[in-house]
Write a protein that binds this DNA or RNA. Sequence first.
DNA 1: CCATGTCAAGGTCAC
DNA 2: GTGACCTTGACATGG
Length: 306
Amino acid sequence: MKIGYPCINRSIGCTANSTFRLANYSEERLIETIGANLECLERILHYNIEKGLLFFRISSDIVPFASHPICKTDWAKHFKRELASLGGLIRESGMRISMHPDQFTLLNSPSEDVTRRSIAELEYHCMLLDAMGLDDTAKVQIHVGGVYSDMESAIERFCARYKTLGAQIKNRLVIENDHRLYSLRDCLQLSKQIKIPVLFDSFHHECLNNGETFRNAVIAASSTWTKDDGLLMCDYSSQKPDAAWGTHTEHIDITLFRDFINRMRGLDFDIMLEIKDKEKSALLALGAYEELRHPPSYLLKHPRTV
DNA sequence: CCATGTCAAGGTCAC
DNA sequence: GTGACCTTGACATGG
C-alpha cells in the first residue's frame, strides 16, 4: 500500500501548479512557468521520497493552457530532458502517479464541442505521463460526467465516446465515483461494458452509495483493475466537522482513518488523501498505517481497539 | 503592500 | 430562464 496526497506541498515553499491569466499569455511566459513548475515538482518528489510518501497526484496546471488552442508550443519537446529525468526519479523510487483533470472534462456531454475539448485535455494529461516515461499504472482519473436528465443514455454516450479514444488515453483513463450523480454501482456497471478501471473514492461513497460497506466496495472496485493497471487507487477523505455536507476536512481524523485501514485487512491498494493540509495529514496516515502493520511492543501487550 | 474580485473550460438545482 | 453553487488556489487589479 502506498500513501500520498494531491498536487500541493505546503511545507516546501514552492508550487508546481503556478499558472497565469489567458489575457497575459505569451510563449515566453508559458516556458518560464512550466520550467518553474517542473523545478518545484522535483523538490516535492524528493520530499515525498525522503518521507516515504510514494503516491502523488501531479497538478493539471503543471503545463498551463496545454490543451487550449492558444498553445502552439511543443512543451513536451522543449522540456524533454527535464520530464524524462523526473520520470526516472519516479520510477526508481517506486512512486505511483495519478492526475485528475478538472470538472469540465466531460466525455459524455451532449455537446460535441465539449467532448472534443475534453478529449484534447485527456490527450494532454497522457502526453505528460508518456513524456515522463511512466507505465500504465500511472492513471488519469475523471468522473463519469453529467446526467443530462437521463443517466442511461448518458452512460451509453460515455461508452460510445470511450470506444473512439486511442490506446494512449484508454490505457490510462479510469473513472471515479462521485458524491452526487454516479455512485460506485453506476461506475461498476459502466466498467462492465467497456472494461475501464474504477477508482474508489471513500468520501464520495459515504455521500452516495447503495449500501455497500467500505470493504466490499474496495473489493468490487479492485476487481476492475488488471495487472497492467496496477493496484486499485483509492481517494480518501472525511467530512469537515460543522461544514456543508460533502466538504473535505481540513485535517485528517486519525481515528477514522485507522478504522478505515483496519477494515481493509488483507486487501492491498494505494491511498490518496484528499485533505486540505496535504502532506501533513499524509504523514500522519502513513504513520498510522505502519503502526498497524508493525505495532510497537507496548501496543501488542495492550492492544488498542480500532 | 494588502485586500478582494476574478480566473478557459460545465452541470445541477433552486427559484 | 436566470443565477447561485460546486470547489479552490493563486493571479492580478485597484485601493
